[in-house]
Design a protein around this nucleic acid. Structure first.
Lengths: 249, 249
DNA sequence: AATTACATTCGGCATTGTCGAATGATGCTC
DNA sequence: GAGCATCATTCGACAATGCCGAATGTAATT
């Protein structure tokens, strides 16, 4: 691990959390002397990854990271293969649809199909949800190859709401269910009033590369069998497009 | 400029251009020995900025860059202030609306309001357009503080279509017009069949921090005075929200 | 005007990253 | 299926590089 590169990324991550930071705040956060941080930030600024507000002289993320994010989306085969099916899933069920991938212990949303009722909704692409508190996350965690309860090995499960599963044994049982059916559920665990049904998506190597979910207001929970069936069908179809030969169940 | 950080960003930039690259391709592109690149890439992978495809062992951008991009958007005051007004501009004119910021010699789109005719359109947030070939770019370049024809100092203007302004003198004249009126125009210069009217957006320090534009099919070009007026009003309104005290004209 | 807080520059020291050479992994050819 | 070729990855010695204490510049505050 190259020290300065690692530090540079930690600068970006810090700015990700705090939006705008002065040099000394950054230095304190990273536990490094200000001149050291300054050198790193200088380099990031030169490439547009970070910009410095002229009036306050504080730093924040720059437009270059947006361009990177956009290219990432274009690169993802999962995304391009999902889009049409996600739209259909939304139309058939009447719910918003999310597609996500796993990043360490979180899920990153790579596609978002708004509810087809015409209501104005924020795009959710790029947002991050703790994997343990989301159906999308559970769907992928259940199929991690390295028999992973990495999550369970580390610090206790992050709790988002009162409904977040906190007990490791309960969590393991849920994952076992997911492995059987291919479907994962979440009710109020990440956001109150929001529940999801998710299906894992596999690629040709048989790994879970992503997951697709419908987002359901908890007032309409539990959903009909038709909806869970639609999620299952969508997840299986996308998997097949990616070259997967098998799907659970 | 810290060497290894600079190199890491150049790795990301290379992956941005080529989507997927093997280590040796990367090394050749950066003109560095493979082990050097490997160390950098290793660090990027550890943070999810880059992922390695298991089957082909090639590298591509990772989900962490998407999250960064999303946070950047959230941070931007310009974006949050623009959204409502961009929507109104779209409704009133019937055209798609873009909001962009300057990044070196390019414009990065930070907000995109689709044409309100209900047709399905790709989101354009994060895409990059050469500043010299776009109305958005001209609107901002005209007000760069350091009397900048940085663009004109460097290599010749990048040409996107036959209509791209290539002559430096002509370009300077256009910028002078923009300084007078606050509005910039573009007809087929970036993409054939696509024309734009853009207005610069200023912040409280009087600097052009962005620009807003309507995107018009060239078949409907030139647009009516009502449309250019609407763009001007929108740009001025957003500027005022950002604390600007004056606007050209 | 004086003071404080902060960003930024400078330069010597030693830590750090660099890159040639060696090893391991994978896929291709005969 | 053995041998070969290509590419990713590891290792380690050297010295170039980046690190950070001290000094300076800058801007806001009293």
């Amino acid at each position: 691990m190259i020290q300065s590169v690692d530090r540079a990324i930690r600068v970006l991550t810090a700015l990700q959390g705090a939006r705008r930071m002065s040099l000394s705040e950054l230095a304190e956060r990273l536990e490094l002397p200000p001149p050291t941080v300054h050198g790193i930030v200088r380099t990031l600024v030169a490439h547009g990854m970070v910009v410095q507000d002229r009036s306050s002289s504080r730093y924040q993320l720059g437009p270059a990271v947006l361009r990177l994010g956009n290219v990432y989306l274009d690169t993802l085969e999962l995304r391009s293969r999902s889009m049409a099916w996600a739209e259909e899933l939304g139309r058939r069920t009447g719910f918003a649809v999310r597609v996500g991938v796993l990043m360490a212990e979180d899920v990153v949303i790579i596609h978002h199909e708004p509810r087809p009722d015409g209501s104005r909704q924020m795009p959710e692409v790029g947002i991050v949800i703790p994997a343990n508190a989301s159906a999308l996350g559970k769907a992928m965690l259940a199929f991690l190859p390295d028999e992973t309860d990495v999550l369970l090995a580390g610090p206790p499960l992050r709790s988002m709401t009162g409904a977040t599963v906190a007990d490791p044994d309960e969590f393991r049982r849920q994952l076992a269910d997911v492995r059987k059916t291919g479907l994962a559920f979440e009710c109020d665990e990440a956001v109150l009033g929001e529940s999801c049904v998710a299906g894992a998506v596999f690629d040709s190597t048989g790994l879970a590369v992503g997951a697709v979910a419908v987002v359901v207001p908890t007032t309409e929970w539990p959903v009909s069998d038709a909806v869970t069936e639609a999620v299952r069908t969508t997840a299986r179809t996308i998997s097949r497009e990616l070259g997967a030969t098998r799907w659970p169940g």
